[in-house]
Computed example of a mutant assay.
Amino acid sequence: MENNRTEFTMIQSVMLDDANDTLLILDQTLLPNEKVYLHVKEMKDVWDAIYKLKVRGAPAIGIAAAYGLYLGTKASKANTYQELQKDFIEVKTYLASSRPTAVNLFWALNRMENRFLQEAGKTLAAVKEALRQEAEEIREEDERVCESIGKHALSLLKENWGILTHCNAGTIATAKYGTALAPIYLGQEQGYNFKIYADETRPLLQGARLTAWELKEAGVDVTLICDNMSSIVMKEGKVQAVLVGCDRVAANGDTANKIGTSGVAILAKHYGIPFYVCSPLSTIDLECKTGDDIHIELRADEEITSQWYEKPMAPKDVQVYNPAFDVTDHSLITAIVTQNGIAYAPFDESLPKMFAQK
């Protein structure tokens, strides 16, 4: 194996332009055809970017929310801490309503609130600066977390393996490296020669539009397949491991991720292929006992019937069921990889230990 490292230019999907009171967001709904950064100033536009998946991926959503909450608070005309707190809570509550499933959204907003409360008694300028610093630390911490997840996950993989992934848990979904794609990038740097199979991930096609695009940009060997082709590539021996990200992990290991993930896990179990969930600790919700407690967001009918077509591809007024996520049962998961190590079943015992690691 080659030990020479090749540093890739990672694409940042969320950036703060503090001097211009602006949040720069890579509009992922336009990829792969256009690479456009939105210049967002208003909270309604931050909310819209999160809700409409212009920014997506649990960590990236958290970063965008933290920056948005900072900018919203920075714009306050309050004259006292109490007035500023009222404005802060108003912005926080509004941004929290954008995506109910991704726990990182609430984690980041709550972390910002904790910092706000810690700054009580200081000047309003100092409070706002503290919020900026906290938002920056959330981003920098995510970069460190993703690299650590990548290193732990890479230890589970071998050279020349075929790896299947679903949805997008890459660098554009995080601060850098990604979660499920982090070991792929690190392996590419170290000459592992992975061959990646990317599910297209209907109905929003994050695998086709985003994962295939960013891996191809980085020079990774990637093959795009339709979601219903996962079984045949597994049966043909082309896949030796499955790597996925997640939007929420329950205390027992049940994992919510983009719709279709549970089907991939069932297939992997059938073919004896390890199924790994790559999760930062911020996505693990120990207060959520099982997957039954995870709220599943239902999205607009047109995502299935007409959004990607010149003409509607379904009968007019047909009933549509469009859940954004499904829950993979913990029994189907080989391991959950965190920045602090690898958790194996029973997850209700191993996951709490991940939080205790330094």
Results as ranks from 00 to 15, higher is better:
K151D: 06
L243V: 07
A251I: 07
H152M: 10
E189W: 00
C167K: 09
S231T: 11
L224G: 11
L205F: 15
D247Q: 03
C167E: 09
Y192V: 07
E200P: 06
G207L: 07
Y177P: 02
A198N: 10
N252Q: 06
G150N: 11
G237N: 11
L157M: 15
T223F: 05
E217C: 02
A218H: 15
L156A: 01
G253S: 07
A241C: 04
V244M: 09
E147R: 15
Q190C: 00
I184P: 01
A218Q: 14
E214P: 06
A250V: 13
P183I: 08
L215F: 13
P203H: 12
L157A: 05
K238S: 11
L154R: 11
K158P: 05
M234D: 02
A241H: 06
T201R: 03
A212Y: 07
Q206F: 10
V233Q: 10
E143V: 14
C146L: 08
W213P: 00
P183D: 01
P183A: 09
A182F: 01
K176E: 13
Y185D: 07
D221G: 10
Y197A: 03
V242N: 11
S230V: 03
G162Y: 12
W213R: 06
D199V: 07
Q190R: 15
A173G: 14
W213A: 01
V242S: 14
Q188M: 10
G237E: 04
I196V: 15
E159I: 03
C146F: 07
K195Y: 02
G245Y: 03
I184H: 01
C226A: 15
A180S: 13
V249M: 09
T165V: 10
M229E: 08
R202N: 14
A169P: 02
E200R: 01
L243M: 09
L215D: 03
I196Y: 04
P183W: 08
L186Y: 04
N252Y: 03
V239H: 06
G237Q: 13
L243K: 05
A218N: 15
V244E: 01
N160R: 15
H152P: 06
L154M: 11
C167Y: 03
R202S: 11
E217N: 13
P183H: 05
G207P: 10
Y177A: 04
S231F: 02
G237C: 09
V233W: 09
W161F: 12
E200N: 10
D221Y: 08
F194Y: 13
T211Y: 04
L215A: 05
K176D: 12
A241Y: 12
C246N: 12
V145W: 04
G170I: 05
N168F: 12
K195M: 02
C246P: 00
E214G: 05
N160C: 04
V220H: 05
W161I: 00
G170H: 08
H166N: 05
K176R: 15
G178P: 00
R202P: 04
G219W: 10
E159T: 02
T174M: 00
C146R: 00
A251T: 01
L186R: 12
G253A: 10
C226Y: 10
Q206S: 08
G150E: 13
A241K: 11
A212P: 03
V244A: 01
S148C: 07
T171L: 00
D254L: 12
V222R: 03
N228M: 12
M234E: 11
W213L: 07
K238Q: 15
T211P: 03
G207Y: 06
C246D: 02
A241I: 12
